[in-house]
Each structure stands twice: as structure tokens, then as C-alpha cells.
Amino acid sequence: MNNLSELHLDALAEVFSIGAGRAALSLSEIVGDEVRISVPSVQLINAEDINPATLSLNCGQFGAVNQHFSGPFNAEAMLLFTEEQALKIVSDMMGSQMSLEELAEFEHEAMCELGNIILNACLSAMADILGFTLESSLPHYAVASANEILSRLRKDNSQPYVMVLHIDLAIEKRHTAGNLVFLLSSASLTNLVSHVDQFLNKLL
């Protein structure tokens, strides 16, 4: 199991597009403005083959919100923004003329909340559409370098598959690109694919 068919990827992209739509609705209510979202794209990669380009990780520091999801399949989900973008989002969420120092104080809490909204919107859309229930842990936010993130993704032998969802979010006309990364074990990937197959079989 190291490949998903075009139809599997299309089904997952559509599921995540619905999730991104739900997340954008929540975010637009928080920031009081339209949140523009791109057409999401989904890729499945072997963890050992992951590189900075696959995650659009250039250089500098990244803000990463982690959350663990469990149910018929388990996944470690990670939402990645550059730290600069993370601070812009926090600034939009707080909606006031805060200084950078003040913003940094709220960064942790606001990014956890943002991660919670986006990750849960995507995972709950998946659970609703594919017909199962997923439980989520509390979100955890950390700032890390690209190398730290990549080595963490590569070293987890129990989760050899990485599903990458790339979404662009633009809040208040600022361009903000985020990556959503799911780490999956072989068994979890097999279970996820079998749920996607059940969903697709109803259509064929």
C-alpha cells in the first residue's frame, strides 16, 4: 500500500475541500472578513522521501500545531505555517493594533485555537462523509525549524506514510499558505483507503 488511485485522491481532496470550507466559515466569523481558500491538493508520500519542497518548507522558523486523532484510523495531524505567517494570522484573529511583543504573548493560544478549528473542520468533514467517528486530543503548538520538522516526520517508523494537504488561506487579503500533514501507520492508511473505497463503491 503505497499508492492511492486518482479517484482516491480526488475523493480525499473533495472531503478536505468541505473541511476547508467549514474552517473558512469559522475563521471568517472570527476575523470578520472573507477568508479565501484555494482548491486543496492531496499527496501521499513515504515518510523517508519527504523533503522541504514537498512541504513548501523553505528556511526559517515554522509554527506547527499538532493534534492526535483516533478512531477507525489513527493520525498525527500537523498544521504548518511559517512563523511570520502565524503571527499575521494571530494579529488578524486578535483584530487590534497590538505590538509584536503583545502578539507573541497570544501566539501560543491563538495558534492552538486556529489549529483546532482547521484540523477539526477537516477531520470532522472526513468523518461525516466517510461515515465514522474520530476523537481528537488537545492541540499542541510549537515553533520549530524546517530541519526539526522533517527529522521528526522521517524518524517515526511506526507511521511510514505522510499525507500532505496543501491549502492556501487568505485572510483580509493577506496571502497565507498553510500545509496540513497527516502521519499515518500502514494499518491506518489501509483502513482509511477501505473507508474511501466503501464511499466510492456507493457511487459506481
Partner: peptide, 8 residues
Amino acid sequence: FSANIQET
């Protein structure tokens, strides 16, 4: 028919 259900 859209997932993008914001008020805008």
C-alpha cells in the same frame, strides 16, 4: 453548490 459557505 459549494463547501465555501461564508456570508460573502
